[in-house]
Design a binder for these strands. Structure first.
Lengths: 215, 215
DNA sequence: ATTACAAGAACGAACGTTCGTTCTAATAAA
DNA sequence: TTTATTAGAACGAACGTTCGTTCTTGTAAT
């Protein structure tokens, strides 16, 4: 009995993983095409050709083209939120938390540029009309909360919290844009130190002692 | 003779302005639709209906749909570059120049949100495939040059100039994004002081004396 | 002053193509 | 056998664009 159940469970797992694999394969191909050519310049037939699956298979796993984008988007927000929560658990000060967020985003840009492009570049509203703007999604509100706590604790100067958040993350995000557009030779993490110092000094309430040059 | 020529010239001028008016009308309608629904969600027929002109008229004034977007884009870059050059002429220090740029961008966001949306939000690469990325267009390279001079003069700490430029303009640009997405209650200029102080303090090489609160 | 002509702006029906999606049949798994 | 999955031909709607025509306006000839 138990063995049979185990077998069924295993086989089910095997089945699930195979299904998940194909689903993931379609998603990966779609992400690649979406970021390479844009959502609207990518047809379902393009995805089908590149993924070497059939139209029917795609429409079996996803409701429609928008459903593919939605799946990508949801997956992404979940991953990002998980990372933000993890960072908030590991780091205790606003400074360390925000720095870690930037560090994570920089690393992700290098490791999964397609994914990152889909986060920061894509005009989700254009093809996911029912989605709220990404800046009011959980990962981004968590980043805002980090900053708000920093203001409460006195680490950050008492400005409007949205202003403080954009001051901290605006520069790093622009660096990500530039990197994704191929305008930066070096990988992002090599700029982290400089970028972060500029970002943090802009809002830090601590006394200011900056050396003339950073190495 | 002279009178006849004058008359012809006048009539020609009148004709030209009428033509220009219609062309501008089509462009304005297109800009509005493009920013409201996105380039790909806007059909030429939509533009035709909203502008209350004929399809033929549109194709008389513009080569094709892409030509409309290109005309908008070119016009925009010219205007922006003119404004940057003007600012560089009027302001003499890096600090004042960059601040004026941000001030101008904030004002423009309020006065012509459609135009601004088209600058900062649209994924031009997707529908203008031959265009270089906007960050390497003249207006943006001029902003970079302002910063580079600031580094040379010692006003800005000696970081990589791209890092400095993103540190200065990244925050303000994010504020513009937020405002265009309707996430800010107040008009942008009311945040200018705070935003600018954060941006400048991030890169300024001067001693640091920030009051606990800004009014 | 009237008429005839020319230039080009405006028009919109119609075209060919591409797209997202559906449908039916075939195959594999349970 | 039944169910889940894959396959790809077929479909209709919507798209960007073309093209023959009409309308408008300015010029020349009578």
């Amino acid at each position: 009995m138990k063995i049979i159940e185990r077998k069924r469970a295993l086989s089910q797992l095997h089945q699930d993983s195979k299904i998940e694999e194909r689903r993931g394969h379609i998603l990966g191909t779609a992400l690649n095409l979406f970021t390479r050519s844009g959502y609207f310049n990518t047809s379902v037939h393009d995805i089908q050709r590149r993924a070497e699956v059939s139209i029917g298979s795609i429409y079996h796993h996803f409701k429609n083209k928008e459903g593919i984008a939605k799946a990508l988007y949801d997956d992404l927000l979940v991953r990002m939120e998980g990372e933000m929560v993890k960072i908030m658990g590991e780091q205790k000060t606003c400074h360390d938390r925000c720095r870690e967020v930037v560090s994570f985003l920089f690393a992700m840009t290098e490791n999964e540029p397609d994914t990152m492009e889909f986060v920061v570049h894509a005009r989700h509203r254009e093809f996911l009309p029912d989605e709220k703007p990404i800046c009011s999604s959980r990962p981004f509100t968590l980043m805002l909360e980090m900053v708000q706590e920093g203001i409460r604790e006195g680490d950050i100067v008492g400005v409007n919290s949205v202003v403080a958040a954009t001051a901290i993350f605006g520069g790093p995000l622009r660096m990500i844009h530039l990197r994704l557009e191929g305008m930066l030779e070096q990988p992002l993490p090599s700029y982290l130190s400089e970028v972060w110092q500029c970002a943090w000094h802009g809002v830090s309430s601590m006394g200011y002692m900056r050396p003339k040059e950073w190495s």
